[in-house]
Simulated assay, not measured.
Amino acid sequence: MKVYKKETVQHVNASIEECWAFFSSPRNLQKITPETMGFNITDFDGKSMYPGQIIQYTVSPLAGLKLSWTTEITFVKDNSYFIDEQRFGPYSFWHHKHFFEADGNGVKMTDVVHYALPLGFLGRMMNALVVKNKLNTIFEYRVKKVDEIFNAKI
């Protein structure tokens, strides 16, 4: 199984507490996900993030293809980091770390995703042709939306 890595770093013009409050709430995920992804939370207990929390949603990564995705929040250190892992969904492996570090004039936010696709050679081809580009597009959109939400007041 080939495991891929996607990493992004962004400065957020906010306090660590403001940044944490926004990004640790699953309710805000839709705000920073492209509408073209058809992202919709289908089950979430509405509580503040905690280890063991299950979040279920649907996504449409490709025209008309609707997929169910279940993630578990596996680790949380308030105002510092959290990790979500796919339990059921389109990837054979998905591990997403979200780090938040105060940097003197805001927050350095780092996302690190490790992922793998099913189907061996076909999965590797799909990554090269579609998935890698789709993830790049999603994270580029996220950077833009975070800039609009937090950094427009600079």
Rank of each mutant, 00 (worst) to 15 (best):
D78A: 12
K153N: 11
G104Q: 06
W94D: 06
L129R: 12
E148F: 07
K134L: 15
K6L: 14
E148K: 04
S92N: 07
A116N: 04
E72R: 11
M37A: 08
F44M: 06
F121S: 12
E35H: 12
M126H: 10
K108S: 07
F39I: 08
G106D: 00
I54E: 09
P26D: 01
V9F: 13
I16G: 02
T70H: 04
M109T: 01
E17H: 11
T110E: 02
D147Y: 00
S60I: 09
K47L: 14
Y115F: 13
Q30Y: 11
Y50F: 14
H11S: 03
M49G: 01
P51R: 02
G123W: 06
V59F: 05
V76N: 03
Q86H: 08
N13D: 15
L62F: 15
N133C: 08
V112M: 09
E148H: 06
A152N: 08
M1T: 13
R27K: 15
I149M: 01
Q53C: 07
L129T: 14
P118R: 05
H114I: 09
F22R: 00
K66C: 14
K134W: 06
L29T: 07
D78I: 10
I83S: 01
K144P: 01
N127Q: 12
F150R: 03
E72P: 05
I32S: 01
N133W: 11
A128E: 12
S15M: 09
K31S: 07
